[in-house]
Amino acid sequence: MPHLRACHLYDETYVLIGRQGHPDLKPGLTIENYVRLEHIVVSRRGGNFETPVDDALGVLGYRRNVVMSAGSFLFIPEIVSSSDLVALVPRRLFRAQSERLMIIDLPWLSERFDIGLIWHERCHGHAGQRWVRELIGKLMVEGEDDAPRA
Rank of each mutant, 00 (worst) to 15 (best):
L135S: 09
Y62D: 01
F75P: 00
T51G: 04
T51N: 06
D55H: 07
R44H: 10
P27H: 10
L101Y: 12
L117P: 05
P148G: 02
S43A: 09
A96F: 11
S110I: 00
H3G: 11
G125K: 09
L60T: 00
F75H: 14
A70T: 00
E38G: 07
P2W: 06
P148A: 12
I115H: 01
E12A: 10
H8N: 01
F113Y: 12
T51Y: 03
L135K: 13
G21P: 02
G128N: 07
A150V: 01
F49G: 01
W108P: 01
L88R: 03
A56I: 02
R19W: 07
L74M: 09
G46A: 11
T51C: 07
E50K: 08
S83K: 11
I136G: 10
I136C: 10
L88A: 05
V132A: 14
D55I: 00
L85E: 08
R133M: 14
P27I: 08
T13Y: 04
R133K: 14
C123M: 09
P90R: 01
I118E: 06
N48P: 00
H39A: 09
V132Q: 12
L29C: 12
R112M: 08
D55W: 00
D105M: 04
V141F: 02
P107Y: 01
G143S: 15
L57Q: 07
R91C: 01
H22C: 11
R133P: 02
H39G: 06
R100H: 12
R63Y: 02
G28E: 12
S72F: 01
D146K: 10
R5C: 13
R122M: 08
M68C: 05
R64E: 13
E121L: 08
V41P: 10
M68E: 15
G61N: 05
R133F: 03
L93C: 01
R130S: 15
D146Y: 13
A147G: 06
M68V: 03
G58A: 15
R44Q: 08
L57E: 11
V80Q: 03
D146V: 00
F49T: 11
G18P: 06
R130W: 04
S83W: 13
R63D: 02
R19G: 07
V86L: 03
E12G: 01
P148K: 03
F113A: 01
F94N: 11
F94L: 15
I76G: 09
I115V: 15
W131M: 14
R122T: 04
S69F: 04
R100K: 14
F49R: 02
G125L: 09
D24V: 05
Q129M: 13
L74A: 13
V141D: 11
R91Q: 07
W108Y: 03
D24L: 15
I31G: 03
